[in-house]
Design a protein around this nucleic acid. Structure first.
Length: 772
DNA sequence: GAGCACTGC
């Protein structure tokens, strides 16, 4: 029997319950479907009209605040009835006699460990730190490094003259760890111990230990590159290799050299990665602190299964039949619903993505089933396209997953692949994010630091990105005027770097400032910053509808950016009415985020802009027949690196700037064709996504004469010069040299090509003009 | 005429 984790009351579960684990944001996205599914059960009341989410069962009521960061929610989607029939959401429950079956669970992100192994090592740790400017700490799961390292240093007086700062890759972690440390020290959160995440700074002048996300520390070092405010910088969870932490590691290496006398740097990492990080930091010492994990027996498959879903289910049932009690956690690559045949007794089976690797701890898990795969987003710098690929996990990830089985008692991990695959095929560590992302933003950031001793192409990365990727970033930055032809940052670029946006959007804002359409541009940038504001498409019955909500504005057919602007303006006119969002199929959480981002961007723009800015959303700005000319012009300048030209005789497009990728407008776009059925000759796109077919997602119509300067600029592009080649090739850049000739050839070809493209476009333009 | 791993400023 299961009991509610909040009230302890026994829930009327019988037999197997399948769970889908999701983060609170996913929950928000899916709450619509879940409410529908649960409405089939009697006695279940869900009320999420407000920011709180209330769920009642068997007469008692539970409330959780959605925005509260220390809990994640997990919903039961499928349950087994006592009589053996499965009641699935969406099916009629009229003839079901079983009790209502629904649970509301709450998982703490951190376990409370009575005795932390790290405590015994305090003397050794302090001694090592005292003697060395940089120390790598290998702390296995449950060692307490995130909470204890900062406190040890605090006790030893390291926070007397300056603060101790600890970075985390995730907001939740920054908040929960800070809260825990404040508790342990018996102080009010925000006083001696505080945290800083985007939109929320809970620190004061009294704060001695500060937790923050790695992104926030990067922003801070933009203002104060020497980070003089801090005496100790701890980069936690560095083995996760987040883009920001990787950049911080490079910066810390330099800073440790400059501030030798008064800065300590601690890097925490995984076993397999420790020596590499130590080598990077000039062979700094490595301290290994054992974790508090129970042994986990690893079992391999003889061969790889043909179906991972089937195989993991079979394994789960196998465990269920043969093994003693304990919950099962299955790592898959996507959200799947699992409908099981009825086994004899009760056990939880949790199906999760890699969210359970880091963000989520589920108590009671004893068995882990690991598919060996993960879904990963990757960027291809030669095409400018993103793709979402299912790839093999690394050894570090596999061990992380296995570790989830040993948190409460000895466990077992079933790997659905042979040991030979683990040993020979799996990479030791996860490919760092820096090697699979577009680097335009990061390169601009590094350039804006204007550190005399830093050259981007020679920047000391733990794992350097490919020179192709760096050159792609430089090319993009050049096209949007953030750097000049010699690769030096421009005054525009300097301002752009201050905005927490991707470069295209910050450039758009700069240009909009000159064209007098800053309120509109702020809105567009904020809307595009939110993952998704529209709710996912409804269930099958409504599948036929072309767009999720016909009542929403359509961007006048000019494109998705315009539609996003209009949507926000409509909401603005209702004074940010939550009900309006719901009626129009918009995610409340997403829209509130947009409002916050817009406010933040406005404040930064006020600082950057020369004169005072009117950033009020244009409620009634007069013009009845707006064609959003200025805004689209600004977008064209900002997205000079993301332009596409329609192909001569059909509605396919070819991207400019890259090697002429042929792409289509994403079917979800509101871009309209003209009377002849043709799309506009030129569009800007927000993103290229290589699903089986390559699509442009979020496009906006622009005019040829705005594009011409960009095409001219493409002609002058010289990647070699951009790469900062102020002089002849130096020894240290040699690793980039082999790639260079190839790039130059490609670029030259692109220039020739653009010539003919201009010609073609001109012809089309004249032909159309003649017709009218 | 489509398909969504996970973060973050």
């Amino acid at each position: 029997m299961s009991s509610c984790l909040i009230c302890g009351q026994e829930l009327p579960f019988r037999n197997v319950a399948s769970f889908v684990v999701m983060s609170s944001s996913q929950l928000e996205r899916r709450s619509e479907g879940i409410r529908e599914a649960l409405s089939e059960f009697r006695n279940i009341v869900i009320d999420d009209d407000h920011d709180d989410l209330t769920l009642s069962h068997s007469g008692s009521k539970h409330t959780a605040t959605k925005t509260k960061m220390d809990i994640l929610l997990c919903w039961v989607l499928t349950l087994q009835h006592a009589d053996g029939r499965t009641n699935l959401g969406g099916q009629s429950s009229a003839e079901n006699s079983g009790s209502p079956t629904c649970g509301f669970f709450r998982f703490h992100l951190l376990d409370s460990m009575a005795t932390l192994p790290i405590v015994q090592y305090e003397e050794k740790i302090i001694e090592t730190i005292e003697r060395n400017p940089v120390v790598v700490v290998i702390g296995e799961t449950g060692s307490g490094k995130s909470t204890q390292l900062s406190q040890m240093l605090y006790r030893r007086g390291y926070a007397d003259s300056a603060r101790i700062v600890v970075t985390q890759p995730r907001r939740v972690a920054a908040v929960t760890v800070a809260r825990r440390v404040a508790q342990e020290l018996g102080v009010q959160l925000g006083e001696e111990v505080g945290y800083a995440i985007r939109f929320e700074d809970r620190t004061s002048h009294r704060t001695r230990i500060k937790y923050l996300t790695d992104g926030v520390l990067l922003r801070e070092s933009l203002v104060n590159p020497e980070l003089n405010e801090y005496s100790v910088v701890i980069l936690d969870e560095a083995h996760e290799r987040s883009l920001n932490t990787d950049i911080l590691m490079g910066l810390m290496k330099r800073l440790a050299k400059i501030r030798t006398s008064n800065l300590k740097v601690l890097i925490t990492s995984a076993t397999l990665d420790g020596n590499k990080v130590s080598n990077f930091f000039r062979d700094c010492p490595v301290l290994t602190i054992p974790g508090k994990l129970y042994p986990v027996e690893i079992l391999y498959s003889k061969e790889r299964p043909s179906s991972y879903l089937e195989s993991s289910l079979k394994t789960a049932i196998d465990i269920h039949v043969r093994e003693p009690e304990g919950d099962v956690l299955i790592f898959m690559t996507g959200q799947v619903r699992v409908f099981n045949p009825p086994p004899p007794s009760c056990r939880r089976i949790i199906v999760a993505t890699n969210i359970a690797e880091t963000s989520l701890t589920v108590d009671g898990v004893v068995y882990v089933i690991d598919s060996g795969y993960v879904k990963q987003r990757q960027y291809n710098p030669s095409t400018g396209m993103y793709s979402l690929d299912i790839v093999q996990i690394s050894k570090v990830q596999a061990n992380q997953r296995a570790g989830r089985a040993g948190r409460t008692r000895p466990g077992k991990c079933y790997r659905l692949y042979p040991s030979q695959v683990y040993n020979d095929e799996f990479l030791d560590v996860t490919v760092p994010e820096i090697q699979r992302s577009s680097l335009a933003g990061s390169v601009l950031y590094l350039k804006s630091l204007d550190l005399p001793d830093i050259d981007i192409l020679k920047f000391d990365f733990l794992d350097p990105p490919s020179s192709e990727s760096l050159q792609d970033a430089l090319k993009q930055l050049y096209l949007i005027d953030a750097i000049d032809e010699n690769g030096a940052i421009t005054s525009i670029g300097q301002k752009m770097a201050e905005l927490p946006l991707e470069p295209s959007l910050s450039r758009t804002l700069m240009e909009a400032n000159d064209y007098g359409c800053i309120p509109e541009a702020l809105t567009v940038a904020a809307m595009l910053s939110a993952e998704t504001t529209l709710l996912p498409a409804r269930s099958k019955t409504e599948k036929k509808r072309k767009h999720p909500e016909p009542n929403l504005p359509d961007g006048f057919g000019l494109g998705d950016h315009i539609q996003l602007l209009q949507i926000f303006e409509c909401w603005d006119q209702t004074d940010y009415d939550i009900g309006w969002c719901k009626d129009n199929g918009l995610q409340v959480r997403g829209m509130l985020f947009v409002r916050d981002v817009r406010k933040q961007l406005s404040q930064i723009m006020q600082k950057i802009a020369k004169g005072p800015l009117d950033i009020r959303s244009s409620r009634r700005r007069g013009e009845s027949r707006q064609d959003y000319r200025n805004l689209r012009k600004a977008l064209c300048v900002g997205y000079a690196n993301q332009l596409a030209e329609r192909k001569m005789h059909h509605n396919g497009y070819r991207t400019l700037g890259f090697q002429g990728q042929v792409v289509q407008v994403h079917p979800s776009s509101v871009l309209k064709a003209d009377d002849l059925g043709k799309f506009p000759d030129y569009v800007v796109y927000h993103e290229l996504i290589a699903t089986p077919r390559p699509y442009m997602r979020n496009v906006c119509s622009v005019e040829m004469r705005w594009v011409v300067p960009v095409i001219n600029k493409l002609k002058t592009l010289d990647v070699y010069k951009l790469s900062g080649g102020t002089g002849p090739v130096e020894e240290e850049t040699e690793r980039n040299v082999p790639d260079l000739p190839k790039k130059i050839v490609e670029v030259t070809a692109g220039v020739d090509d653009s010539e003919s493209r201009i010609q073609a476009a001109r012809e089309r333009f004249l032909a159309r003009k003649g017709k009218k």
